[in-house]
């Protein structure tokens, strides 16, 4: 198998910052502020009125504009499918023309960043696991389409204005994340990817989602190791989604790996950035210089669908 690499990590957050207390006071959460604080959350980020998920995507890609190079494909993931259209529903209602339901942000991104050779793919049914899914789609494109040498992976979501910003007991932030996947040996080598979908639980309640979390995540990781012919001893860092910290204290005992090797330092200040958490945390880890060349990181995500995805990366 030819190797593919992930580099140029970037993210953007909703432009307004609110404390958990404000979020609870404003009716944005189901849990109390105290419970969310105990889970590890301190604040979250919300788009101002009028700002779209696409605005977030642009802000996430802008810092790596110069690094994009010859992008052959854009894989644009959204957790909430409505963020995969920036057209006006009102215009559709007025005109009854469905083109207003097909105003795709990936196409805009291609145009706005001048990525003329890029084809676009939307990924909108993997929920929080979408960004990890996009890495695998990128890998497949790179290995099967000779003219595609670089793929831009983007995930971007903002919640509807009146939505709760709590899902499965986690505090949510609007935000976007991006990275470039290529065959250029820089950044992180994509060692393995694995996913599980349990469609029968697509409309699972919050309690069912939590109820299935530990054993499915454990299975996901074991199957990923099996695929990659690795064990937990080969993993230097676990880079999970921003969820209740106790959940990973438990999972770290089950794997087992020392809890200090579970890196999700962004939980308090970023909250759960839908499918961008892994990129945010990996960027923190990278910027700090904590992860060393040759070390492997296990990126784990669970999301509605129900979907679980896992990626093993190796730092170059």
């Amino acid at each position: 198998m030819s190797d593919v690499f992930i580099d140029h990590l970037s993210f953007a957050l909703g432009d307004e910052t609110h404390s958990v207390e404000d979020a609870a006071k404003n009716g944005k959460t189901l849990s109390t502020a105290a419970v969310l604080r105990e889970a590890g959350f301190i604040q979250h980020h919300v788009c101002r009125d009028g700002a779209s998920a696409y605005d977030l995507a642009k802000r996430a890609v802008e810092p790596i504009r110069e690094k994009l190079g010859d992008i052959g494909a854009i894989v644009y993931a959204t957790c909430i499918p409505i963020n995969g259209n920036i057209g006006s529903f009102d215009k559709y209602r007025q005109s009854r023309d469905v083109k207003h339901l097909m105003d795709f942000p990936a196409s805009h991104l291609q145009a706005d960043f001048g990525l003329q050779r890029a084809i676009v793919l939307g990924l909108n049914q993997q929920a929080c696991t979408g960004l990890l899914g996009s890495l695998e789609v990128a890998r497949m494109l790179l290995l099967t389409e000779p003219e595609t040498r670089r793929v831009l992976c983007v995930t971007s979501d903002r919640f509807p204005t009146d939505a709760l910003y709590e899902q499965s007991y986690n505090l949510i932030s609007d935000g976007a994340a991006a990275c470039v996947v290529s065959m250029e040996p820089k950044g992180y080598r994509l060692v393995a990817w694995h996913g599980i979908t349990n469609g029968a639980m697509s409309q699972a309640s919050d309690d069912e989602t939590v109820g299935s979390y530990f054993n499915h995540t454990h299975r996901l990781i074991q199957e990923t190791f099996s695929k990659a012919k690795l064990t937990i001893q080969d993993i230097a860092w676990v880079v999970p989604q921003n969820t209740n910290m106790k959940a990973w204290q438990i999972l770290s005992r089950l794997l087992p790996i020392e809890f200090k090797r579970v890196y999700f330092r962004s939980v308090p200040e970023v909250a759960h950035l839908i499918s961008g958490d892994n990129i945010v945390n990996l960027k923190y880890l990278d910027d700090e210089g904590t992860i060393r060349p040759g070390e492997k990181a296990l990126l784990v995500m669970a999301g509605y669908g129900l979907n679980w995805q896992c990626v093993i990366l190796e730092k170059r």
Binding site: V35, E38, A39, Y169, D206, V210, T243, N244, K246, I250
Partner: peptide, 8 residues
């Protein structure tokens, strides 16, 4: 301990 914050 956690079921208070991530369980109904």
């Amino acid at each position: 301990q956690g079921v208070n914050s991530f369980g109904g």
